[in-house]
Each structure stands twice: as structure tokens, then as C-alpha cells.
């Protein structure tokens, strides 16, 4: 058996989360005492497989085909299925069998990894934050209830399993002296079986608000309750000399423009001060702001995950705390 990391690339460049997936995969392959293998799908991969082979990987499968040039769920699933079946069913005992298939938990992996797992009668243990071997079982830790709770999900080692690893949860792999082997794996794909017709990815019109360079940010979440209350956050931001930002639900509701959204689908920020007002801290938000130097969380729910990454926390009513803070700042300035 082996651990197989299926990595993501665009234009021959590895998605940076791939190094973390390799790091997590290397740790698990070490604990299990089995080789680490990787696979990269695409067309015109250049020397990317050779680069990846330097990160402690025994073997890198370069899966190239003209129909993999652009990502489609149908194309990628068929190609990976063929690769895994070839390795699993191979009668040559020298060949290793993937027992654990790992992905970076990207939007692309979310689109096709569950489909692939289903073909093997498996589920995808998605968005994993930690993993360990415990009493002959492979245990994955993943979050429940938007990060408020965790769950340990365990299954016997040696059974085929699929999992995707959360961004920032595993230490990225480092290059090593000895490079692994690179092997081309030929797949059979028929254009007629690829049903989605993707167009070129694009970005929306240039943003007029650049939160990434803001030194201080006051970000507002669901706890603000109503559109009219946004003014309170605005006043606090003004008093602190901060930019105003928001979590996704606020922008979904149209209370603030999408360009002020922080998180995986919005902007990534790293200010000196990030004050989260009524933000619970779902992972999609945290990935966009965990680079902040100092984080302040004000929330009425003591179990909100935002408190796990905050430096200063206030469990309380933001409608009392924020006005008091504005008063104090004004006093200090005067």
C-alpha cells in the first residue's frame, strides 16, 4: 500500500496548498511505514513532476492528456480512477497500492474528489485539520458546526480512504537530497464523456477597495443583526483609523459591497490589528485573516471559533461594547 497525494496545478505551477498536502502525506506515510507517491494531472506539465519528486516523494505520476488541459470534473475523475485502479489491481507485487488518497482541500478538489471517492464506494473525509494513527486505526480530525466543534473519524489502516487537507493545517514539505522517480501514466479519455464545457477563468472588475494593505481593520459579521447597525461598525472603524470589512453573510445580504469581504472567497488580509465584531469565525473567514498580527474578538457566543485565534477576547454584547470603545478612543484622543 501507499499514500497517494493528488496535487493541483495551473499552467504548470503547483497550487501552494500542494506542499502542505505533501507535508501531511509524508507524515502519514511515515507513521504507516508505506511509501509516499504523488500524482499531477494536466497537459504540458513541464518539469513540475521533477520538482515535486524532490519533496520526499518516492514516485510521481505525471498524468498528461490533451483532455486534461482544462479542469473538468469528468476528465479528472476518469483519469484518477484509472490511475488508482491500475495501482490497486496490479498483479505485480512490486507495485505499491494506494490505501490513502489525499487532496488539498481546494475549491477544485471539492468539485471532483467526492465524485472520485464515490466510484470506489468510499466517502471523502473532507477538510481535515489533523490526522494520526491510533490503535491500528487511521484517525482524521475535522471540524463540525462551522468550526465550533471537532470530530475524530477513524477507520482501520489498510482500507482504501480518501481525504482532503485544510489550508494551513499541515506543515509544508521541504525539499530533500534524493529525488524520487517520475513515471508517466497514460490514461484513456474520450471527449464525448466530458459533459461540462468550461470557459477561461476570469476576475471581476478591478477592486476599488484594497484591504490587503490596510494597517487596521474592523470586520463585522452576523452578530450585527441588521443593515442599519452597520453604521456602528463604521463609526468604530473611523475612530480607530481602520478600514471596514465583513464576513461573507454580510456581503451576501448586500449590507456591504462584496469587495469588503474577507475570507476564502474574498480578500486575504494581514493587518496589524483585526477587530472582529460579531464574527463567529468559520474557517472560510479565518483563512482570509489569520495572518493578522493582533486579533480582537467581540462576540456574544463564548464558544465561537474566532476566540481560538484571537489575542484579546470579549464575550459580550457588541451593541454595548462597541459604543463604549468609541467613547474611550475619543476620550484618549481628546
Amino acid at each position: 500500500m501507499s499514500v497517494l497525494a493528488i496535487l493541483e496545478q495551473r499552467g504548470g505551477v503547483l497550487n501552494r496548498m500542494g506542499f502542505e498536502t505533501l507535508g501531511g502525506a509524508a507524515r502519514l506515510s511515515g507513521s504507516l511505514g508505506v511509501p509516499l507517491e504523488a500524482a499531477i494531472l494536466g497537459d504540458g506539465l513541464g518539469d513540475l513532476p521533477q520538482q515535486v519528486a524532490r519533496y520526499g516523494v518516492a514516485k510521481v505520476y505525471a498524468v498528461e492528456h490533451a483532455l486534461l488541459a482544462q479542469y473538468t470534473a469528468d476528465g479528472y475523475t476518469q483519469a484518477a480512477e484509472q490511475l488508482i485502479r491500475a495501482a490497486l489491481i496490479d498483479i505485480n507485487p512490486e507495485r505499491t497500492k494506494p490505501a490513502l488518497v489525499l487532496f488539498p482541500h481546494t475549491y477544485q478538489a471539492r468539485d471532483w474528489a467526492p465524485k472520485l471517492a464515490t466510484r470506489f464506494g468510499c466517502w471523502l473525509i473532507s477538510d481535515v485539520v489533523d490526522a494520526r494513527i491510533e490503535a491500528g486505526e487511521l484517525c482524521f480530525v475535522r471540524q463540525l458546526f462551522q468550526g465550533k466543534w471537532n470530530a475524530d473519524i477513524c477507520a482501520p489502516t489498510g482500507s482504501l480512504q480518501f481525504a482532503s487537507l485544510q489550508a494551513g493545517a499541515f506543515r509544508a514539505a521541504e525539499p530533500v537530497e534524493a529525488a524520487g522517480e517520475v513515471a508517466a501514466f497514460a490514461v484513456q479519455l474520450d471527449a464525448a464523456t466530458i459533459r461540462g464545457k468550461p470557459e477561461e477563468p476570469f476576475r471581476e472588475a478591478q477592486r476599488s477597495v484594497d484591504l490587503s494593505s490596510a494597517e487596521r481593520i474592523v470586520a463585522v459579521g452576523r452578530g450585527i443583526k441588521e443593515k442599519d447597525n452597520i453604521a456602528l461598525a463604521q463609526h468604530l472603524a473611523e475612530a480607530m483609523g481602520a478600514e471596514l470589512a465583513a464576513s461573507r453573510p454580510i456581503c451576501d445580504n448586500g449590507w456591504l459591497p462584496m469587495e469588503r469581504q474577507v475570507g476564502s472567497s474574498g480578500q486575504t488580509v494581514a493587518p496589524k490589528l483585526y477587530l472582529a465584531l460579531g464574527i463567529s469565525g468559520a474557517i472560510q473567514h479565518l483563512v482570509g485573516m489569520k495572518g493578522a498580527k493582533t486579533v480582537v474578538a467581540i462576540n456574544s457566543d463564548a464558544s465561537a471559533p474566532i476566540f481560538e485565534i484571537a489575542d484579546y477576547g470579549v464575550v459580550g454584547d457588541l451593541f454595548q461594547v462597541a459604543p463604549a470603545l468609541i467613547d474611550q478612543i475619543k476620550k484618549a484622543k481628546a
Binding site: 484517525c139 463540525l144 471537532n150 473519524i153 477513524c154 481560538e308 454595548q320
Partner: peptide, 27 residues
């Protein structure tokens, strides 16, 4: 689904919790 256990996560970062009346907390 082989869920062994569910539990609130442990805090990894040292957080200072501020308590008291709103004015005290703000100060």
C-alpha cells in the same frame, strides 16, 4: 460514518479574555 467522538476544540493560542462592564472592558 465512523465518528469516534465529537468535542469542542482546544485553544492553541493564548487569549486574554477581558471581563467587566462595557466601559471597563473598553478601557
Amino acid at each position: 460514518l465512523p465518528i469516534r467522538r465529537v468535542y469542542p476544540p482546544q485553544r492553541t493560542k493564548q487569549i486574554q479574555m477581558l471581563t467587566g462592564a462595557p466601559e471597563q472592558v473598553a478601557a
